[in-house]
Amino acid sequence: MDGQLKRGILNICILQLLRQQDRYGYDLIKQIQAFFPDTEESTLYTILRRMNTDGLTERYDSPVSHGPQRKYYRLTGQGRERLQEYLADWEQIEAVFSQIGL
């Protein structure tokens, strides 16, 4: 799959998974890799970091009693808005696809 297209789809998947519930990086990456097995963890960590920098997500440390300290990602209001924009774009793409017979 084209890198640019794939990155766009990964963005939508990550935002959607975070809309369902807060998740830590490793968990999120494993979920995505279940759908896209050839996706590198480096790609996903970079997307997560960028989303955080852009204000789409925010991070917080989990209060763990045992096991490793985990950094959880939470979707922000801005992230929700961005997801809606992506989904609107996607609907437009689907409409174009159906019009040209795909």
């Binding site: 830590y24 990086g25 490793y26 968990d27 963890e41 960590y45 997560l48 970091r49 096991g67 490793p68 985990r70 950094k71």
Partner: peptide, 19 residues
């Protein structure tokens, strides 16, 4: 700062894979 962030991510990766 970015280095520390990335190292944190991979430290998390190792810990969870070990678990």
């Amino acid at each position: 700062e970015e280095q520390a962030d990335i190292i944190g991510d991979y430290t998390e990766w190792f810990e969870n894979e070990q678990l």
